[in-house]
Amino acid sequence: MELVKDIITGVFFFIGSMSIIIGACGLIKLPDVFSRIHAAGMIDTGGTAFFLLGMIVQSGWSLITVKLVLIGVFIFFTSPVTSHVTANLAREKKLTPVGKKIGKVL
């Protein structure tokens, strides 16, 4: 039973690690702010979700699980807000994104 738990946690941690490292590479590699927000979103959603899932599998049913779920809820509520505000301000300050515009734009 312990072995199964450890294997599941290991798989989750592996996916989470890949996710945050690819996200961090994207933060360096992508061309402008608007594209980098997607990479940051990958760290905020994929990395967080899989790391927390791995730790939840380890801790079983206890108070710790509730705290882990709470961390996940906070990050999942706050991450899109910061992303949106950053993107919105960058648009307000007249930064033009790389790439094409389809149709009329606000």
Partner: peptide
Amino acid sequence: FDRILAINSLGTI
């Protein structure tokens, strides 16, 4: 904005 975004990601990490 790049820096603010990166700091936010660093906080998550």
